[in-house]
């Protein structure tokens, strides 16, 4: 499999008079291979948009090496720009133009046949609204138009920055279906989001960023597996007694109201055997799989009960353990 996007050690510092220096991206790495639907996950302000801007030559990186479709970026980006459809942070369009005219202008500027415009509008569900002015569009419709502009080129690589922004639930589902069907035709997709559910539903790979650094990356199921503590939720008639029995069997059991959370069991049959042998019949036995959300919250240091400030997220694993969990490559320092 060939790399479609490679980023190594990307750094970008913004300087402003009022706020001084702000490190937006701090030695970030990203690898997206052909055919992936790659989720780019991170809380607000973690550097996703800045990374994509640097990759697409819109901001100038301080240091780092990047390439897109095998061409070093931004130097040789023009060579492959025709194959890369991208939206970066809800793009704005000229309000007086209709959706159709907006796309036609872009198509013309990029040397794409104008017949593509109708196809792209159709793909994003704007076919019947193409001749309305953009300023009369809703936020979601503008977002769809943006995606249509990225699809106009019939791209090999699609980069979407928070495409679900402003979409209603039905729109989010349509966007998801669209991405799936594009992926099925072999398009590589990089989609950034702060909404975990989205990524988990459509992506096969994920890279998690926090404070400008990569904190996890790999196949979605493997990233999750890395955080699986093999816990099970158990419901029995007498949780207290069950806990004692399980403790005696060298398993850790914590009573949680009516139920038990058991950890340390490699196999759930061990739990039902230990309890069953003592006449305690298991009413429910559910593996507690981590979802991306909990992994994400753990990695990015957010705690549900404390209002987290955009900048104060920590790098719990990377910073404390000084290691990045990368399931494709093992643990690197």
């Amino acid at each position: 499999m060939s790399a479609v996007i490679e980023i190594e050690g990307l750094r970008k510092t913004f300087h402003s008079m009022r706020n001084g220096r702000r490190v937006a991206v701090d030695g970030f790495d990203l690898l997206v291979e052909e055919g992936q639907v790659h989720g780019f996950l991170g809380p607000n302000g973690s550097g996703k948009t800045t990374t994509l801007r640097a990759l697409l030559g819109l901001v100038r990186a301080d240091s780092g090496r990047m390439s897109v479709l095998g061409q070093p970026s931004p130097e040789l980006l023009p060579r492959v720009a025709g194959q890369v459809g991208a939206i970066v942070e809800s793009p704005q369009f000229f309000g007086n133009f209709t959706g159709y005219r907006t796309l036609r202008l872009l198509a013309r500027a990029g040397g794409v046949p104008v017949s593509r415009v109708d196809e792209a509008l159709d793909l994003v569900g704007l076919r019947d609204r193409g001749d309305e002015r953009v300023k009369a569009y809703s936020l979601g419709m503008k977002q769809r138009l943006a995606v249509a502009s990225a699809l106009l080129k019939d791209p090999r690589l699609l980069i979407l920055d928070e495409p679900a922004n402003g979409l209603d639930p039905a729109g989010i589902r349509e966007m998801r279906d669209l991405m799936r069907s594009l992926a099925a035709t072999g398009v590589t997709v990089l989609v950034s989001s702060h909404i975990l559910g989205e990524i988990q539903l459509i992506c096969d790979h994920v890279t998690i960023i926090s404070q400008g650094r990569r904190v996890a990356s790999g196949r979605v199921d493997e990233v999750l597996a890395g955080y699986d503590r093999h816990e099970f939720l158990v419901r029995v008639a007498d949780p207290q007694r069950a806990a004692e029995l399980l403790d005696a069997a060298e398993l850790t059991a914590v009573v949680d109201g009516e139920a038990l959370v058991v950890s340390g069991a490699s196999d759930p049959t061990v739990i039902s055997r230990v309890l069953g042998e003592q006449g305690l019949w298991v009413g429910e036995l559910t593996p507690l799989r981590p979802d991306l959300e909990s992994v994400f919250l753990e990695l990015t240091g957010a705690h549900p009960s404390v209002p987290r400030q955009v900048d104060d997220s920590a790098l719990p694993y990377a910073a404390q353990g000084d290691a990045v969990i990368d399931l494709d490559r093992g643990v690197d320092a």
Binding site: L56, G57, L58, P74, L77, P78, A81, A86, V88, P91, Q92, F93, F94, L106, A109, G110, S149, K153
Partner: peptide, 11 residues
Amino acid sequence: GGVVNLLLWRP
């Protein structure tokens, strides 16, 4: 953002 849109097409 018109310039940015254009640059995504013609970098």
